Simulated assay, not measured.
Amino acid sequence: MRLTDFWQRMDEVFGAGYAPSIASDQVLTTLGGRTVREALDAGVATVVVWRAVCAAYPDRVPSKLR
């Protein structure tokens, strides 16, 4: 998954105003206790980060985006 696709999905799921906050503030245990931004900056593959977001917000992410 390309980084641009990842951010488009984040915006679609959380809204353009809230997605950056989720990415910067929410620590996910499946990412080793890092935020989305920290994981991406550390070189974690976008698909791995996206799967972690899907797992953390199962009611928020529609099946078509999983």
Results as ranks from 00 to 15, higher is better:
62 P>W: 00
4 T>C: 06
12 E>A: 11
55 A>E: 00
10 M>W: 02
18 Y>T: 12
4 T>F: 11
37 R>K: 13
29 T>Y: 05
39 A>G: 09
14 F>Q: 04
64 K>G: 00
2 R>K: 05
48 V>T: 12
60 R>M: 14
27 V>F: 14
2 R>D: 07
48 V>A: 12
62 P>Y: 03
16 A>V: 15
8 Q>S: 11
49 V>S: 06
4 T>S: 13
4 T>W: 01
2 R>M: 05
21 S>M: 15
30 T>A: 15
37 R>G: 15
25 D>P: 00
28 L>I: 11
58 P>I: 03
57 Y>W: 13
36 V>G: 04
31 L>E: 01
66 R>W: 04
40 L>F: 11
22 I>W: 07
17 G>D: 15
3 L>C: 05
66 R>Y: 05
61 V>R: 06
65 L>T: 01
33 G>F: 12
50 W>Q: 03
35 T>A: 11
46 T>S: 15
4 T>V: 15
8 Q>A: 15
33 G>D: 02
64 K>L: 09
32 G>M: 11
14 F>V: 08
58 P>F: 01
38 E>R: 11
26 Q>G: 00
14 F>T: 02
27 V>I: 15
36 V>P: 06
10 M>V: 11
33 G>N: 07
59 D>M: 11
35 T>D: 13
36 V>H: 01
23 A>S: 13
57 Y>V: 04
47 V>T: 14
53 V>T: 04
50 W>Y: 07
37 R>N: 15
40 L>H: 09
6 F>H: 05
51 R>T: 03
50 W>T: 04
48 V>H: 05
20 P>V: 10
10 M>R: 00
57 Y>E: 01
62 P>I: 07
25 D>Q: 12
15 G>E: 14
31 L>S: 09
34 R>M: 14
21 S>H: 13
40 L>S: 09
13 V>L: 08
42 A>I: 07
34 R>W: 05
18 Y>V: 14
22 I>M: 11
3 L>K: 04
17 G>Y: 13
47 V>W: 08
61 V>G: 02
65 L>C: 03
63 S>T: 06
52 A>I: 04
2 R>F: 11
64 K>I: 10
60 R>F: 09
13 V>A: 08
24 S>F: 01
55 A>C: 10
64 K>H: 12
46 T>R: 13
58 P>N: 00
9 R>T: 04
12 E>F: 00
20 P>G: 10
40 L>M: 15
31 L>P: 03
37 R>P: 06
20 P>H: 05
46 T>V: 15
25 D>C: 06
56 A>W: 01
34 R>S: 10
31 L>Q: 08
58 P>C: 03
57 Y>S: 00
56 A>Y: 00
8 Q>M: 11
16 A>T: 14
31 L>C: 12
24 S>T: 05
57 Y>P: 00
2 R>Y: 01
38 E>T: 08
23 A>W: 09
66 R>M: 09
51 R>V: 04
22 I>Q: 05
47 V>Q: 10
65 L>V: 02
42 A>H: 12
38 E>F: 13
5 D>N: 13
7 W>L: 10
9 R>H: 07
6 F>I: 12
56 A>L: 03
61 V>H: 01
19 A>R: 02
54 C>Q: 03
13 V>E: 04
64 K>A: 13
23 A>G: 13
2 R>N: 06
50 W>E: 02
28 L>N: 01
6 F>T: 06
65 L>F: 04
23 A>D: 12
20 P>T: 08
6 F>V: 12
8 Q>R: 05
47 V>F: 10
